[in-house]
């Protein structure tokens, strides 16, 4: 039996309330959704709670899934809604990274406090941390598109379906999200000698 057929069968069994089938069904999605929530919130604790919430809601709503979209798309759509709900409730409006201070001054910005480690691995870890913080400061829709497209490598079509948005809008959002993120992480990109990347 192909994995697709197996998934369809598991969905049908799970719809009838078979918990074991449901848990088997979500096996390959748990890590993916956890990582999505983690990149959306930049908090392991929140990501864990939200991921749990995603699968509880999925379990409750599964009987209404009619297979019109891919199952992964359906799961992502729930995850996206839950992350947006979380964002609204938590009032994460504090700007960690300020706007570029002076656009004429080559758009430099402050890095988080702390001495950079002399070791390269520590530096890379720090850079990645900064990158993730910058992602978390993007507007939610931009953040979703960056995470789905650039980190989780989903197709434009699937992103359009997850966000219920026309394909053209996804592309223009991605373009703007890339520009916003590029501005925010410019110190990393300017690292020179290919060192920073």
């Amino acid at each position: 039996m192909s994995s697709e057929n197996e998934e369809i069968q598991l969905i049908e069994e799970a719809k009838k309330g078979d918990l074991a089938a449901f848990e088997k069904l979500i096996l390959s999605y748990e890590k993916m959704i956890y990582n999505y929530c983690l990149r959306m919130t930049n908090s392991r604790e929140d990501a864990e709670d939200l991921t749990q919430e995603v699968f509880i809601r999925l379990y409750k709503s599964l009987k209404r899934f009619r297979g019109r979209s891919k199952f992964s798309t359906y799961v992502y759509r729930i995850a996206h809604n839950i992350c947006i709900d979380h964002y609204r409730k938590s009032k994460v409006g504090i700007i960690f990274l300020s706007q570029p201070k002076n656009s004429e001054d080559d758009r430099e910005m402050d890095l988080p406090a702390g001495e950079p480690s002399p070791e390269e691995t520590a530096l890379q870890k720090e850079q990645q941390e900064l990158l993730l913080q910058c992602i978390a400061q993007l507007k939610p829709n931009y953040r979703t598109i960056i995470v789905l497209r650039e980190i989780q490598e989903r197709s434009y079509e699937e992103i359009a379906e997850i966000l219920n948005m026309p394909l053209g809008t996804v592309k223009s959002h991605l373009s703007r999200a890339r520009t916003a993120l590029r501005e925010a992480v410019r110190p990393l990109l300017k690292g020179g000698d290919g060192h920073a990347l």
């Binding site: 956890y34 864990e48 850079q127 990645q128 650039e150 980190i151 490598e153 990393l188 990347l197």
Partner: peptide, 15 residues
């Protein structure tokens, strides 16, 4: 460079 940086973001393990 940004694209490459994002591709290199490590996948986290489930708690």
């Amino acid at each position: 460079k940004l694209k490459q940086l994002l591709r290199n973001v490590a996948e986290a393990e489930l708690p």
